[in-house]
Simulated scan of single mutants.
Amino acid sequence: MNLKQLGYFVAIAEEGQITAAARRLHISQPPLSYELAQLERELDTQLVRRGPRGVALTDAGRLLYERATRILAMANATAREVSSLGKGLTGTLCLAVAHSATGLAPGQRLAELAARHADVSLELREGGVPEVIELVASGIAEVGVVRTPFPTQGLRCRYAPAEPLVAVMPPDLERGRELEVGLAELDDVPLVCDRRLAPQLPATPFCLTDDERTTCSCAAAGLGVGLVPQSLLAVCDTGPCFIKALVERDLWSRAAVIWKADRSLSPLAERAVALLGELA
């Protein structure tokens, strides 16, 4: 089993047809069918079920697809890093950003890379905090931007200042004072928040999301009062909603730039970390 075979198999899995995968790979169908058969023989298991309209992955095929996409991503990341170490500030930086930190990164902070270095490009990956940490830990992304709380083992971190949690209030659900509101004052309204925040609240929210930007969208639609980090408002349309800071400082959080503690950063990643700074 080699990287070429894995790339072929990923194309078949994503296209759902050997003919379509062959077109995507710019090869003819017979060699692709041969490589798939060779892979199944080598692994001694059936990876796809062939039908009149295409192919469907078996359980073994789904497992191989999941692993193959990660292996290929790691191989590409390794090639980028090795090339970057040899050439300086050139190549592609893979940056992973948590949904809750998109108000702080990448934005204009990395614009200097494009402005000053024509041979630099950016590959941006997004996900929840656990997904971003996994991308950094696996080496797929050299640098990540996450939000507390998160496990720091094996990571180096550069923290931003603490920022308030804010309530995004539809006009008919406005509570509290002019600029602030306490959780006790929100007892009688439906709350919308990210799943990671929910355990810190005294009561179960009405709606849980996987992305704080969705939380803002729900609040703007009048579904409930959304609770999000203040910096996220820079990238969200909150419509006619009122914005008030929560008085509970124990719910404040900090964004952080992270990278692997046991791995040397490429010159490009080092420059990106310097530009991101403390995300202030």
Rank of each mutant, 00 (worst) to 15 (best):
A114M: 12
A114D: 08
A115T: 12
A115I: 09
R116W: 06
A118K: 14
A118N: 12
A118R: 15
D119G: 12
S121K: 10
L122A: 11
L122K: 01
E123A: 11
E123R: 04
E123L: 12
L124N: 02
R125E: 02
G127L: 09
G127H: 07
G127T: 08
V129T: 14
V129L: 09
E131M: 11
V132F: 01
V132H: 01
I133K: 00
E134A: 15
E134H: 09
E134S: 13
V136L: 08
A141E: 00
A141H: 01
V143I: 14
V143G: 00
G144C: 09
V145Y: 03
V145P: 02
V146Q: 02
R147Q: 15
F150R: 10
F150W: 09
P151N: 13
P151E: 14
T152M: 13
G154I: 07
L155M: 10
L155H: 05
C157M: 11
C157L: 12
R158I: 10
Y159V: 04
A160F: 05
A162N: 07
E163G: 13
P164R: 08
P164K: 06
L165W: 01
V166A: 05
M169D: 02
M169T: 03
P170T: 03
P171F: 02
P171M: 02
P171E: 03
P171Y: 02
D172S: 12
L173N: 05
L173P: 11
E174A: 10
R175Q: 12
G176M: 02
E178K: 08
E178D: 13
L179I: 08
V181P: 00
G182I: 04
L183R: 09
A184M: 06
E185H: 04
D187S: 14
D187M: 06
D188I: 05
D188R: 13
V189I: 11
V189E: 03
P190T: 06
L191K: 03
V192S: 09
V192H: 10
